Simulated assay, not measured.
Amino acid sequence: MTTGKTPAKPSTIYDVATAAGVSHQTVTRFLRGYKGIRPETQARVEHAIAELGYRPNLTARSLKSGRSHRIGALTHELSQVGPSRIAEGAAAAAREAGYVLDLVSLDMRNPHAVEESLALLTQQDLAGILALGSTDEMSRAFTSTRFRVPTFIDVESDDEPDPYRNRLSNASMPSLVDHLVEWGHRRIALIAGPDNWSASRNRTRAFHAALARHGLEAEAVVQGDWSARSGHAAVAEADGIGAATAVVAANDQTALGAMLALKESGRRVPEDVSVVGIDDIPEARYYDPPLTTVHNPFELQGRAALHRLLALIDPDHAIDLDVPLPQLMVRRSSGPAPEPR
C-alpha cells in the first residue's frame, strides 16, 4: 500500500549548518571532534543535529575522503559487567565521532579466535581496530598478532600505572579498606577474582597493600570467579572467610552471593559482618541491604580508549577524556564492627 507521499529527504550537513547559523566547515569540525569550537556554537550545532535527525552518510564520507569509517572492536566475556559497559562506551563514542563500531566477542577457548575474527573483520575496509583485553589469554593473543591498520590495545597491566584502568584497583581498595577500618574492623577477608585476570591480581595486591598501611593482615583470601555463585561458595565453605567481621568482594556480583550465604548461616549484614564490593552495578543499590561499593566509570573508559584509537587514525583528533577516579558509594551493607564476644 502506498500513501502517495514522497519520503522526507534525509538532512544534509548543509541543512545542519543553515539551522545552526554556522558554516558547513564548522559542522564538519564538530563531527570530527574538534575541540576549538566555542561552547555556544557547539550547542547550536548539537541542537540542529537533534532537531533535524541528521545522520552522517558514512558511505559518501568514505568515498569522498578515501578513508573508511568503520572500526573493528575485539573483546570477550561480555556477560561480565566491566567488559560489556566498556564496549558500550566505545560504541557510543564511535557513533558520536561518525564511525560504526563492529564488535566481535572472542571465544578464548579457541586458540585461533583472534586470527579468525580478524579475518572476518578485514573482509571490510577498516579505519582501525580497538582491542579490549581482560585476561592473560587476551593479552598474549593481542601482543602476538600483527595488525595491519591502526590499533589501540586496551589491556590492564599488572601494577603498571595507567590513566584509564589500573586506577580502579589503586583507588578502590584503599577507599574500601579505609572505610572498614574507620568502622573498627580489624578482621577483613577478601573474595578475589580469577587468577588469569590482571584486574583481579591488581585488586588483590592493592587489598593487601591497603591492609598493610593499617598494620593489618588479611583474615582470609578466597578465590572466586566474579560470579555470585563463587561469592556464595566462599562464605558457605566451613573455613571460607574465617572469623572476619568484614568481607571485601572483588566485584558486586560476588558480594551478592556472599550476602545471601551470610543470611542463610544466620549472620546479619552489616550487624554481624559488613560486605563491600567494587563496580557499582545498577542493581547494587537495590541489594538487601543496599551495597557499599566503588563506582567505576566503565563507559568513560570505553570512550577514552576509542578516542585514543581515533588519535592514531587521525592525528588531528585531539580529544583526551579525563576519566575520574573511582568513587566510594557508602550504603547500608557496611557498618560498625561487632563487639568482641
Rank of each mutant, 00 (worst) to 15 (best):
R303V: 02
V276K: 06
P289M: 11
H295L: 04
A305N: 07
L310V: 11
L306H: 08
A304G: 03
T292D: 02
V273E: 08
E264L: 13
Q327N: 04
H307D: 13
P289W: 06
D316K: 14
L328Q: 09
L328D: 02
A305F: 05
R303L: 01
I319N: 11
L306K: 07
I281W: 00
G302A: 04
A311S: 15
A318K: 15
Q327H: 05
D288K: 10
V273Y: 04
V269N: 02
I319D: 14
L312F: 00
Q301W: 06
L328G: 03
Y286R: 12
L306V: 03
Y287K: 11
Q301H: 07
R267P: 00
E283N: 02
L309S: 08
V323I: 10
V269A: 06
E299K: 14
L300H: 09
D316L: 13
V275L: 03
G266S: 01
E264T: 12
L300Y: 05
G277M: 06
R331T: 02
R332A: 15
H317T: 02
Y286E: 09
L300Q: 15
L312K: 15
L312G: 08
G302D: 07
E264H: 11
R308E: 12
A305L: 02
T293P: 07
T293C: 07
S274D: 12
H317Y: 14
P297L: 02
P326I: 01
P282L: 10
P336K: 06
G277F: 09
A311Q: 13
L300G: 04
I281K: 11
S334I: 04
E299P: 01
G302P: 04
A284C: 09
D279K: 01
L291A: 05
L306D: 08
V273P: 09
S334E: 06
E271Q: 15
P282G: 09
G335P: 10
D288R: 14
L325D: 14
P270Q: 11
L312Q: 14
E264I: 05
S265C: 10
T292H: 07
S265P: 00
V275Q: 04
L300I: 06
P315D: 07
V294F: 01
P282A: 12
